[in-house]
Design a protein around this nucleic acid. Sequence first.
DNA 1: GTCATCATGTAAGCCGTTACATGATTGC
DNA 2: GCAATCATGTAACGGCTTACATGATGAC
Lengths: 218, 218
Amino acid sequence: MLDLAILGLLQEGDLHGYEIRRRMRDSLGLTANISFGSLYPALARLEASGAVTATERAAGVAPLSSGAAMGSLSGELAALRARRTSMARPKKSKKVYRITPAGQAYFAELLATPTSPDDARNFSLRLSFARHLAPDVRLALLQRRRAQLVDRLTEVSTSARREELDVYARCVVEHTEERVRHDIAWLDGLMAAESQRSTHHSISQDPSVGHSMAPANE
Amino acid sequence: MLDLAILGLLQEGDLHGYEIRRRMRDSLGLTANISFGSLYPALARLEASGAVTATERAAGVAPLSSGAAMGSLSGELAALRARRTSMARPKKSKKVYRITPAGQAYFAELLATPTSPDDARNFSLRLSFARHLAPDVRLALLQRRRAQLVDRLTEVSTSARREELDVYARCVVEHTEERVRHDIAWLDGLMAAESQRSTHHSISQDPSVGHSMAPANE
DNA sequence: GTCATCATGTAAGCCGTTACATGATTGC
DNA sequence: GCAATCATGTAACGGCTTACATGATGAC
């Protein structure tokens, strides 16, 4: 789950850990901030497994962007220069992560693999990265989620001992049910949009819009 | 969290583990079934700490309540039948749990204590049991939750780099935001109902309605 | 110069899961 | 008698949190 989120964010551009956390909060549908205690070990693991590479940015180095398009080259140079000039090996410095081809493969695998506790969080995360999926896989994702919600709805209405519940418990159950219905309607809307897109797919293949390959911002 | 749910359900009447699990699914707002691997150890812990007592049905042991009010009548019959028919001490039998005064105290403490990861699940659970709370504590619970959601909303709208997101990520974020707004409106409705109730509190103190002290069903 | 914020990490532990194993009850 | 379901448990493990510890950067 964490791996998927990290790799997905790194597809948009190079980032350091702190920034990854911020984006998880407000780019993904995540309710709560992920903790550093799980983020940094995850990054270390991904680096060890070759899914990402880390370039250690030393103190007082100019940011990437100056003139060129992709930043890591100047970044590496800057890091080297900084290491030469000032401190030999700063104990703590900003580490910028970049996804590798192996990491991209891993990401694709994670994204396509259905997960066993297929809850809302998992689904939201996958949907956030849905532009990396083939249209049919994407549609399957939506349909699978819809089927789950429908299952849950019928299950809830079947039990139907709602009259025995007190006001508060009942209102929680009803609110839950309402939310499920609402989510189903939402999914229906998304699926409709999907089929519309698929009819126009010869015109614009890539559903990505308004996306700038921004480097890690400072 | 689990302890709170278990004890809360046992306040409605005696239950065995399997039934507790079912009620967690459809009486509480729980999305997924709790697993037995966490439920049974939790029950064992609660029993060891004296918060609940377990009467083993069909073990030749008479249930607690011979003549008294609470309704384990069917339990007694089952025990009698089991004693008549077969083995003296079956290795596995249905265990019916009952909350103790100590358990009720523990429940009250858990219910009133605000939790650090104060997420939706925690809130739903507490709200389900809100009839056990004093009106002011209940209102505080609602207000605290509302404040959190509002915080989150402003936080999300502050970041507002939504334009940089692709269609899918953006629609996830927007749906999340919409859900938060909807939840806030829901809470507002609940709080309005609360203040209405408080104006009539001399007429009916106990907000519990339509609740039958059902024994563990078979 | 010091305070808040940014930034990276480690250690301990909780809470829950999956997978496994077993026994009792009920319907046919 | 056999299958499905009800019912109780154990063992191993995983993911994520809190609390702790440290260092760099920028504002004032």
